[in-house]
């Protein structure tokens, strides 16, 4: 659906070259919700703006819907853009126009018959739950309502792709949730491919199927949200995961680790999916000659799958403990010894 091939974007600013995107390869399948996360300045904005050529890549290829966008004439490109909806962090609505006209605008640009415009706009306003606001002006709406109007506007041309540029970053947590639910519905009901850029890992966890981590213009990690959350490969990905998974070891546990007796060892065990339901620890306590003590634990849900994170102290002979670890490794869980200063 969306393919980036070796996309590089270089800005010239006061004689200095800044690489906003550095040789980015990315592939987004039809119907996916794809998230791109990164710190500010990582190149997220440039990336999403290259999908509809609001910014032209310095080199590389952008293919959307089997169309190589960079090879299109301005007219063809405008046509192609009607298939790519976009919503923005600050909504970017026309303050001088009513909600109705705002939603209708993309249709008015192509001189769509009046009756058809009316039908489509009310259909969309119903979909986002704001039919009664049709005659209001954007500044009479709350942030969440404005974003809903932005979404309705983006959908008016029935695009197959929706780009979300930090669409929830200016909203409070509750409103964010309702907008994310709406995006999920759009994805399901209209089978629209959604590309989201954000700096909030919560957004990725909530609705994305796949995620790419962007740092200094490079994709440093990409994969299913589940894999990246369960086993982040890079430091940055791990930091992002930590912001929502709360898997940092608490200070009190650190102190325990420091004062641990030589007969005990501390491990972090990560349960994924079905394994989270298995009574692993009680099995261990029965089968092996060790004492099991849970120091810290959390269970989150990821894409409808439980995801557990336990910090456990095993007390017993070193030999017995290593047998325990071997046993755990045979299950579908990850286990790692926790040393001090390592989280």
């Amino acid at each position: 659906m969306i393919t980036f091939e070796k996309v590089t974007k270089i800005y010239e600013s006061t004689g200095k070259q800044v690489k906003a995107l550095d040789d980015v390869d990315l592939h987004i399948e039809k119907g996916e919700i794809y998230g791109v996360i990164g710190f500010s300045g990582a190149g997220k904005s440039s990336l999403i703006r290259c999908v509809n050529l609001l910014e032209r890549p310095t080199s590389g290829k952008v293919v959307v819907n089997n169309q190589d966008l960079l090879s299109l004439s301005p007219k063809e490109l405008r046509e192609a853009k009607r298939n790519i909806g976009m919503i923005f962090q600050h909504f970017n609505l026309l303050n001088s126009k009513t909600v109705f006209t705002n939603v209708a605008m993309p249709l008015l640009l192509t001189k769509t018959p009046k009756e058809e415009v009316k039908k489509r706009v009310y259909e969309l306003l119903d979909f986002v739950g704001l039919r009664d606001k049709a005659d209001n002006y954007p500044d009479q709406l709350s942030g969440g309502q404005k974003q809903r109007i932005g979404i309705a506007r983006a959908l008016s041309t029935q695009p197959s792709v929706l780009l979300c540029d930090e669409a929830t970053s200016a909203l409070d947590p509750q409103t964010t949730q309702s907008i994310l639910d709406l995006l999920k519905r759009i994805n399901k009901e209209y089978n629209i491919t959604i590309l989201i850029i954000t700096h909030e890992m919560g957004v990725i966890r909530e609705i994305c199927d796949k995620v790419a981590v962007l740092d200094q213009g490079k994709v440093i990690e990409a994969g299913s949200v589940f894999d990246v959350f369960a086993q982040p490969k890079t430091e940055i990905a791990h930091n992002f995961v930590s912001t929502v998974m709360h898997d940092e070891i608490p200070e009190s546990v650190h102190q325990l680790i420091q004062s641990q007796e030589s007969t005990s060892q501390i491990y972090r065990i990560v349960f994924v999916g079905e394994s989270a339901g298995a009574p692993l620890l009680s099995q261990i306590a029965k089968q092996f000659d060790v004492e099991v003590n849970v120091l810290f634990g959390s269970i989150t849900e990821l894409q409808g799958t439980p995801f557990g994170n336990l910090i456990v102290k095993f007390e017993g002979e070193a030999k017995e403990i290593s047998r325990v670890i071997m046993h755990i490794n045979q299950q579908e869980v990850t286990v790692k010894e926790v040393l001090d200063n390592v989280s």
Partner: peptide, 22 residues
């Protein structure tokens, strides 16, 4: 607001339409 222009460009408005309608 430059954001409004950006939205106009994203929805495929011609330069003329951007001036007149936005």
């Amino acid at each position: 607001d430059p954001g409004v222009m950006e939205a106009a460009q994203a929805m495929g408005a011609t330069p003329r339409q951007i001036i007149v309608r936005f």
